Structure formats: C-alpha cells, structure tokens
Amino acid sequence: MTIAPAKLSDPTVRAFVTAINAGDREAFFRVLTPDATMSDDGSDRDLNDWVDREIFESNGRMDVQTESSGGHGLVANFTNETWGEMRTAWRFTVADGKISRFETGQA
C-alpha cells in the first residue's frame, strides 16, 4: 500500500517527496539546509551530483510504503530511468523546517 505524499506526517519530508515526484529541483533544494549532506548505501556522496544523476536527470520518483520515527524514516519504492525500481530506506535529519542530512540505501 502506498502512502500519498500529502499524507506524510512531517511537513518537511512531505515537501521533499513532493518535490522529487514533481521533478522540481528548486523546490527540492529549498527544503534542504545550505550545508546539507547525504549518503547512499552507507557512503557519503556529493549531494548536487547525486541528486542530479539519481533523481532529476533520470526522472526519479518515490512511492512511499511506510513511515516511522515521526515521519523521519521512510521505506519507498524508488524508481528512475537508470536503475528501474528498487525498495529503498530513507532517514532524515530535520531541524527548523529544513533537512540537514538524508541517508538512503536499499531496504
């Protein structure tokens, strides 16, 4: 069962998922702190490079299956034109309405 982005508990995470699914890079970066960091499968990555390659240049999309930790943990089917669909886990560090770090990897 998929959780509609509008139903996600945390408004910051909701904006993150909504921006990805809309292909809206500007809205995506508005929800991040200027010094935000991220990791993929346990390795820190260059955020701008990763986001462009894995999300915006390859039409990435998140279909959220479950949420936990007050909305700061998600399991989602993530799809893009490079890798197809994979089950992924996402963890967010949120402060003052902005995401300072997100971690993703296969679930």
Rank of each mutant, 00 (worst) to 15 (best):
residue 50 W to M: 05
residue 63 D to V: 07
residue 34 P to N: 02
residue 21 N to G: 05
residue 44 D to S: 08
residue 91 R to E: 11
residue 56 F to M: 12
residue 69 S to E: 14
residue 89 A to Y: 10
residue 79 T to G: 04
residue 48 N to K: 11
residue 45 R to F: 03
residue 35 D to V: 05
residue 101 R to N: 13
residue 77 N to G: 01
residue 86 M to W: 01
residue 15 A to P: 04
residue 57 E to A: 11
residue 86 M to Y: 06
residue 2 T to L: 14
residue 57 E to N: 11
residue 90 W to F: 14
residue 52 D to R: 10
residue 61 R to L: 03
residue 91 R to Y: 08
residue 23 G to Q: 14
residue 77 N to C: 02
residue 35 D to E: 10
residue 33 T to A: 10
residue 60 G to D: 05
residue 97 G to K: 03
residue 100 S to D: 12
residue 6 A to R: 12
residue 40 D to S: 06
residue 96 D to H: 14
residue 50 W to Q: 09
residue 82 T to H: 08
residue 18 T to Q: 13
residue 45 R to D: 09
residue 10 D to Y: 10
residue 13 V to I: 07
residue 45 R to A: 07
residue 53 R to E: 11
residue 6 A to T: 13
residue 78 F to E: 01
residue 93 T to V: 14
residue 32 L to Y: 01
residue 65 Q to V: 11
residue 85 E to H: 01
residue 35 D to K: 11
residue 33 T to H: 06
residue 29 F to E: 14
residue 62 M to E: 06
residue 44 D to T: 09
residue 37 T to S: 13
residue 44 D to A: 07
residue 64 V to K: 04
residue 93 T to E: 15
residue 70 G to F: 06
residue 95 A to Q: 15
residue 70 G to S: 05
residue 18 T to D: 15
residue 57 E to Q: 08
residue 39 S to V: 08
residue 18 T to S: 15
residue 40 D to P: 00
residue 64 V to I: 04
residue 6 A to C: 03
residue 25 R to L: 07
residue 14 R to I: 15
residue 3 I to Q: 01
residue 3 I to G: 03
residue 34 P to L: 05
residue 43 S to C: 08
residue 90 W to S: 00
residue 20 I to M: 10
residue 106 Q to C: 00
residue 19 A to C: 07
residue 69 S to I: 01
residue 13 V to T: 06
residue 15 A to W: 02
residue 53 R to L: 12
residue 61 R to E: 06
residue 71 G to E: 06
residue 7 K to S: 15
residue 28 F to A: 05
residue 57 E to C: 02
residue 5 P to T: 08
residue 94 V to H: 05
residue 64 V to W: 05
residue 37 T to G: 10
residue 27 A to K: 14
residue 31 V to A: 12
residue 70 G to M: 08
residue 10 D to Q: 08
residue 43 S to W: 12
residue 100 S to L: 03
residue 35 D to Y: 04
residue 97 G to N: 07
residue 75 V to N: 07
residue 103 E to M: 13
residue 67 E to F: 07
residue 64 V to F: 02
residue 41 D to F: 00
residue 100 S to N: 11
residue 5 P to C: 09
residue 19 A to K: 04
residue 43 S to A: 12
residue 7 K to N: 14
residue 103 E to C: 13
residue 31 V to W: 00
residue 107 A to I: 10
residue 3 I to P: 01
residue 25 R to I: 03
residue 73 G to A: 12
residue 27 A to V: 10
residue 83 W to M: 04
residue 30 R to K: 12
residue 87 R to Q: 11
residue 80 N to H: 10
residue 16 F to M: 14
residue 86 M to T: 06
residue 10 D to R: 06
residue 15 A to Y: 07
residue 38 M to D: 01
residue 11 P to D: 15
residue 64 V to P: 02
residue 75 V to W: 02
residue 102 F to P: 00
residue 40 D to E: 10
residue 41 D to P: 00
residue 49 D to W: 13
residue 71 G to W: 02
residue 81 E to T: 13
residue 95 A to I: 15
residue 4 A to I: 06
residue 9 S to H: 12
residue 87 R to H: 14
residue 60 G to T: 05
residue 2 T to G: 09
